[in-house]
Design a protein around this nucleic acid. Structure first.
Lengths: 233, 233
DNA sequence: GTCTATATTCGGATAGAC
DNA sequence: GTCTATCCGAATATAGAC
């Protein structure tokens, strides 16, 4: 069976990202430096990691509003007082988590320049998107479900991120059309229809896990579906 | 431009549904009869309508948890005390709203028996789904975003509803395949990929409104996309 | 049936000892 | 840097007059 996986596949991608984990956290630390009362970087990074992970876990079960800072304190094993010297407020915690994901996405979701054929560029975008949302599944789910509670600024950025991906897809489709690789009537609507196929992966993660469909299974199937829909073999 | 709309289109569908509005509310009233302290049916139906609509509106802006019963009282113009003689508790309100949508969906989402060709049956299912989620957009959005807060029972039913649609799609695909109308490798995965295209309509409603894409525009485009993906003409 | 006033619980946030 | 104890506002829910 032929795939469109390129040379690497998911495991390699994952390894590459996890090497940079600390850099991402450090950038978040710097951004919110002013309100974090603890000074030792190493301590902060370790704690932020725990706090973020636990918040995502609890929130994705019960919702962010329904998750009390007390719950968080118990689940992390960090006392209320300590916790507040890292997060300042529950609102700030929300915004810290939001920046965390954005930092990771901004640094990793790039189409490499050596890919020039639109068809390959689109494939790469779709596959990488699935990969990155696999690694950051809790964050993407959280960001999707809680974006209503973001402050206007953060919300703005979340929506902007959404639309950027969609526009990128739309552009790649149009390039492909003008080169005769795709047959599509309405590239904007088509791009809008492809987007939820990317989101599906992190929104219904549990369903695919239960059905034993792996990241690469999904990426392969989804890409085949899309390419068939846009008439690109 | 050819469409697959059949004879009717959305406006006719809408008219048909709104004639039954009161029946739907009455069924909800009956289901929760025991906990509603007001006895006159006409009064109850009128109030429930207002309470449900307002709750959906407020919740879809700020989330259900973040919406206080006080907010609801102010927005509906019904005092706290009165309100509680209709809803019993905030949890019960959640469950009443959930049943409301389920009643409507159960009574309207049926494939007519005069359609026998799988290809037409699938088309009808997709289009009707878009139509019904257009009418009940606030409810579907609510149900999707708040399902984490449902009690285990209600949650069960929500998931069951989800899977039923998906299985139905999958079955129609398989019929189509065995009749040579579609070319699909993996009907289950394909059905799973079609599902989010239906959900897209009520989850990103604002986006399509801004772009002046109507219900029928969306249904047409989405159906064309799907049929192209599954190799059906 | 509807209202106002109030009891009670809970959750965010802080003070200050260690 | 971390903890315990506590404050205070907000939200659910009810009592009881009209």
């Amino acid at each position: 069976m032929t795939t469109t996986r390129g040379t690497e596949g998911y495991p390699a991608f994952r390894r590459k990202i996890s090497n940079h984990q600390d850099e991402f956290l450090r950038e978040v630390f710097e951004r919110h430096h002013a309100v974090i009362r603890i000074k030792k970087e190493a301590v902060v990074l370790r704690k932020l990691q725990i706090i973020f992970d636990t918040t995502l876990e609890l929130s994705n079960q019960h919702g962010f509003q329904a998750t009390s800072v007390r719950d968080l304190s118990v689940a992390t094993g960090i006392s209320m007082g300590s916790l507040y010297s890292y997060i300042e407020s529950k609102d700030r915690l929300l915004s810290m988590i939001q920046s965390y994901g954005q930092v990771v996405v901004n640094r990793t979701l790039r189409i490499p320049e050596h890919l020039t054929v639109p068809l390959e560029r689109l494939r790469h975008l779709l596959r990488t998107h699935v990969y990155i949302t696999e690694i950051l599944q809790p964050w993407f789910y959280f960001s999707y479900m809680e974006s209503r509670h973001f402050d206007p600024d953060a919300r703005e950025r979340a929506i902007a991120g959404e639309l950027r991906t969609e526009r990128l897809i739309s552009e790649l489709l149009q390039e492909g059309i003008s080169q005769g690789a795709y047959r599509v009537e309405n590239p904007e609507l088509t791009a809008a229809l492809i987007k939820p196929l990317l989101q599906e992966w992190y929104l219904k993660r549990w369903k695919y896990r239960r059905r034993r469909i792996t990241v690469d299974d999904y990426a392969d199937g989804m890409i085949a579906f899309v390419e068939s829909a846009v008439g690109g073999r």
